[in-house]
């Protein structure tokens, strides 16, 4: 009897020890994986940041690693001048933010329409939203290019000016497409909003209706306010993607003076041409400074919004 009791006790304490060892090993494994992957993500950014402060001598000195011996801001000065940084960035932010606001309004409206109303062919139309997500823009790029090159809605342009209008080279095509709910990844945003509105209780709207609120009033003042988590999610996504987008900017030949990420791709050529710096290793330092410069505003906004963003993602309708 005594023996059995002792056996059980040792077994219990053994298993407790085993468990804690197991837990410790798992925790360590988790720590290693997370730190490792964070390193993979952060390392190149750190590398770019460091080399943007390097002087020409440091770039060729094999002893220099992570800490430049003669840090300099000269690269930044040149790049700011060549990019015409502040005015261009201002225009780009204006362009991006205005498109973002349009995206949020239009996509939430469409998502709400699909979530709360019944009309003929609703299922079919929603399938069209899914088609929009799935079809890559490259499939329709040529017709879009042609449409905006000879822009002639219902022959109106011919009627007024005598010939079709060429909208390429201006940001108008992008605004037009976004306004009609077909902007950059609009399908995805419509989907997110639709999922979110479907999850909200119907009683809110019924109460508003009983109190005499119209459909539009209900939508703007009540539903949109309740949809803040997904509004933030969509706002962050649309801003970041719009800011980084070069595909539409290239397709519609939107000026470099509006889209700064387009300007960065020609930066090394400009530096080579204007400052007569032909060494590719040194050119890379200038490019690194340029990249840091264009990343700064978006990272600032992200750091500011990231708490709301991650909370918003968890509560918003990404999950159906």
């Amino acid at each position: 009897m005594q023996k059995i009791k002792i056996d059980a006790q040792t077994r219990n304490s053994m298993s407790a020890m085993q468990r804690s060892v197991k837990k410790g090993i798992l925790g360590l494994a988790q720590f290693v994986v997370i730190v490792g992957i964070c390193y993979v993500i952060v390392a190149p950014i750190l590398g770019i940041l460091v080399s943007s402060f390097m002087s020409d001598g440091d770039a060729y000195n094999p002893m220099v690693y992570m800490i430049p011996t003669a840090p300099t801001l000269q690269k930044y000065k040149t790049v700011i001048a060549r990019l015409n940084y502040f005015p261009t960035m201002g225009r780009d932010l204006l362009y991006t933010l205005s498109l973002m606001i349009i995206q949020v309004f239009i996509c939430s409206m469409v998502g709400y329409g699909f979530a709360r109303f019944n009309f003929p062919f609703k299922k079919l139309l929603f399938a069209c939203v899914v088609v929009m997500i799935v079809i890559p823009t490259n499939t329709i790029m040529l017709p879009l290019y042609m449409t905006f090159k000879n822009f002639n809605p219902f022959g109106l342009a011919t009627l007024i000016k005598g010939k079709s209008i060429n909208l390429l080279g201006t940001p108008v095509p992008m605004y037009l497409m976004t306004f009609l709910g077909c902007g950059l990844r609009s399908g995805l945003y419509i989907y997110i909003f639709n999922q979110f509105f479907r999850g909200l209780p119907k009683e809110i709207e019924e109460a508003a209706f009983v109190d005499g609120a119209g459909v539009w009033y209900t939508y703007f003042r009540i539903m949109l306010m309740n949809a803040m988590p997904s509004v933030i999610t969509v706002a962050v996504f649309s801003m970041v993607w719009q800011y980084n987008d070069t595909f539409y900017a290239k397709l519609f030949l939107i000026s470099e003076n509006i889209v700064i990420s387009k300007k960065i791709s020609s930066l090394t050529a400009v530096i080579a041409n204007e400052d007569k710096i032909l060494d590719t290793t040194i050119q890379q330092l200038y490019l690194d400074a340029g990249i840091i410069l264009i990343m700064v505003p978006i990272v600032l906004i992200y750091v500011f919004l990231q708490r709301y963003f991650i909370e918003g993602v968890e509560r918003s309708g990404i999950v159906g």
Binding site: V110, N118, F119, I135, T139, P143, G181, V215
Partner: peptide
């Protein structure tokens, strides 16, 4: 009908930019 008004902008855009382009 009002609900249809909500999706109208998108519908026009889809027809002009997507369906027609495809």
């Amino acid at each position: 009908v009002k609900g249809f008004m909500f999706i109208l902008p998108w519908l026009v855009g889809f027809i002009i930019f997507y369906a027609r382009s495809m």
